[in-house]
Amino acid sequence: MQWRYAKDWCASVSIRSSLILVNLIAFIIVFVLFMKAEPILRIQSLGHLLFSSSWHPLKGQFGFLSFIVGTLEVTAIAMVLSIPVSLLSAIYLSEYAHKYFKGLVRLMLDILAGIPSVIYGLCGVIAIVPFVHSLGGFFGNPTTGYSLLAGGIILAIMVTPVIISVSMEVLAAIPDEARTSSLALGTTRWETVRYVVLKGSLRGIIAAIVLGFSRAFGETIAVLMVVGNVAKIPTSLFDPAYPLPALIANNYGEMMSIPLYDSALLFAALVLLVLVGAFGLVANITLSRLTKKGYYFS
């Protein structure tokens, strides 16, 4: 008998302390990246790092502007392409579609969300890049096809399942009574959707979009494969760009050979972590309040 109490006590203590481990890991990740980024922050001001576009590691110049702009633009294109499609699909699935069809589409969305990013990248290289190449030719904009637009299209496909499934959860959290009481007042299905369902779930849908945005923001391999990777601020959709994650991924090899280069790259990683973390935090808090359920990236 005593033995069972002792076992229970030991297990309780170790199970409890495992949570401390989780928080410790998160803290260590932030701490390590910060310590490593600190040397470059000591030499150059934060403003200079973020808002200068002169990128000459050999001369010790690390201006991240063109990479930050590249990241933002590629993400923005993805969102512009993805938001209408995702929201329309989500509304259809949650308000109009038959239960079985919904289940089937769910499975397909799960599959789409689960496809590794390298395969997205490969499909981009095979299909999207040539498509953008000929599109550029059509608009009189000669391009290799490895461009901002190609990256945006690939990212749009990648974040769409995320936005759809989170939006569906949000729409499902609107109580059915709200729908029936609106319909009972003689409104049509569409009016109910538009004035009751969408209005009630606006915040949640915005949170879903923020989640998709932060997912797109940090995506590395797929974008890297199609975006061209030229360290210049792009001026048109058909120009190549060079997003932050791609910068880190491409240069880890030389990281140790040029002074301060490692610090600069880890600064970039820290920027990614902080931005994505902040977006994620806001979206998660909003969603967990709305759906009364823990929320997470899917």
């Binding site: 940090g218 880190i248 990683a269």
Partner: peptide
Amino acid sequence: VLDVLWGVPSIVYGAF
């Protein structure tokens, strides 16, 4: 914290 960690880009894990 876990939700945020879930969303952290894998390249950041790689760099770390």
